[in-house]
Structure formats: C-alpha cells, structure tokens
C-alpha cells in the first residue's frame, strides 16, 4: 500500500470537512474493496476517511411500507435483521450471498453501492425495488444513482446516508456466482409492487440495468412461462474470462424465471 493519512470522523460534517481539505481523499466504508485495491497498488488516495463509525449512517428501520437501511449497515446485519427478513426477505437473502461471512461482517450497503462494481449484488435490488438513495445533499432514485461501470451520480464529497426501499408484494434475487470471486457472474432481482414488475440485472452489463421486455411480460402474467419466447440479446453484455455475452444472456432468462418462481 502507498502511504496515506487516516481519519475517523464521528459526524458527517466532520467527514465532509476532512474531504474538502484533502488533496485526493477517498471515503472508506467497510473497506472490503478499497483495502484490497490499495494493497495491490491500484489506488493511491492521499487521505482515507473512514466513515464506518458515523452514528447517523447506522441502523435498520421499518415505517409502514418503507424499509430504511443506514449506509454503513453491514451486509451481515442486513442478512440477519428480523425487520428486513419480515419486510423484504429477498433483500435479506441477497445480503446473505454477498462475499462470505467475514466479508459480510465488514462490507456495507453504502460502500457497495457507492463503488458500483458491475458484478455487485445490491445495485440489482435497489433498481428492482425502486429504492431511493439519500445522500448528504439530496435524494436520488436508484435508477439515476447507478450511472456507469464504477460510476454513480455521487458528486465529489457527497456521501450516501441511507437507502429506503418500498416494501414489494413479492420479490426474489437469483445469483449465479463467479466460481473464483463469488461476485455475480449474473444476478437478477425481480420485484412486483403495486406499480408493476421490475426486473433488474447485475453482473451482465457495464452497470445494472432493467430488463423491460421481461417486466412487460411479467406485468401481465407473473409466472416463469411468461418469459418463454422472449430472447435476450447478447449485444452489449459483458464478455470475459468467466462468461461470454451469449452465456450471460442465457443466464438472465434462466435466473429471471427462477426468481419469479422463488418469489411465488
């Protein structure tokens, strides 16, 4: 690792000031991505601002039809939370499949979505559930939040504070893990709400995206056979060592059907 300054602010204000005052600062949440990246000399921030202990960023609560999760809530806490399990079991299930138990005890929701790894799990949930990301300066719909590979709508110095999820009627997440890294080779989150069905795909493209033809078909008939005959184009999908675009296109269909079945 290159040298850097380390800060552990207790408040959002303090964090923002540290960020503004530093040359090339980097927020750190659970550190499960940035630490390995720095270890491999792939990043050299001047300052690491550890926001993992800011009290305002913690906590899980349910208010009516809305589940709210603080940005620094760890994956393990989401997976183990009764509130989450009762309100959106698919989200709890998703969290329980991120990384491994040790990673889940450090990694956070906010860190994951701010990094926007194209193979991360959470972006699929946020987009499919129509979640809202609250930052230190505004609220952003999940769809607008994830902009491109490793890119989000966050401005310099802007932090994710919390995410709110409308509780869906039905939802499920199906993931096909990469056999080496256990990131999603492809993951599909399907959610049905009063406003209709949303299908969000992660791992297959440069950034999470919605599969609108699936959504239309499932709006009419929320059952796996509804997706028969819809062919997913491989154009624009990722092709890499682990899976070709054609294979990912196939996984999108297979996983979407399984998610619909799983959602019941």
């Amino acid at each position: 690792m290159y040298e850097f300054e380390y800060h552990q602010p207790k408040t959002l204000e303090e964090a923002a000031k540290l960020f503004a005052d530093a040359d090339d600062p980097q927020f750190m949440a659970g550190g499960q991505t940035i630490i390995p990246v720095m270890k491999q000399h792939l990043a050299m921030p001047s300052d690491i601002i550890d926001i993992g202990r800011i009290a305002d960023l913690q906590g899980i609560s349910v208010d009516g039809d809305t589940l709210t999760i603080g940005a620094m809530t760890r994956h393990g806490d989401v997976a183990g939370s009764d509130e989450v399990r009762k309100s959106i079991p698919a989200l709890s299930d998703l969290a329980s499949h991120i990384g491994d138990p040790a990673v889940r005890n450090r990694g956070t929701l906010g860190g994951s979505i701010a990094n926007n790894d194209p193979a991360a799990d959470y972006p699929a949930a946020l987009v499919a559930l129509g979640a809202t990301v609250y930052t230190t300066s505004r609220e952003i719909s999940a769809e607008d939040f994830f902009t491109a590979m490793f890119e989000t709508a966050l401005e310099d110095g802007e932090m994710v504070v919390k995410v709110t999820f409308p509780v869906p009627e039905k939802a499920a997440y199906e993931k096909f893990p990469n056999p080496a890294s256990r990131y999603a080779t492809t993951g599909v989150f399907v959610a049905r709400t009063g406003d209709g069905v949303r299908v969000a795909v992660t791992g297959a493209g440069a950034c999470v995206f919605r599969q609108s033809d699936f959504e239309k078909a499932l709006d009419t008939d929320f059952s796996p056979p509804a997706l028969d005959g819809i062919s997913v184009s491989a154009d624009g999908l990722n092709s890499d060592l682990h899976a070709s675009a054609e294979y990912r296109a196939n996984l999108i269909t297979v996983l979407a059907k399984r998610a619909v079945k799983h959602a019941g």
Binding site: G31, I35, P36, D50, G76, P101, A102, V103, N105, R106
Partner: peptide, 9 residues
C-alpha cells in the same frame, strides 16, 4: 465476529 484481518486496517 469473524473478519478477514488482511482486509482491515
């Protein structure tokens, strides 16, 4: 809680 000590400062 179990944690990977090589991924924590």
């Amino acid at each position: 809680k179990p944690v990977k000590s090589c991924a924590m400062l």
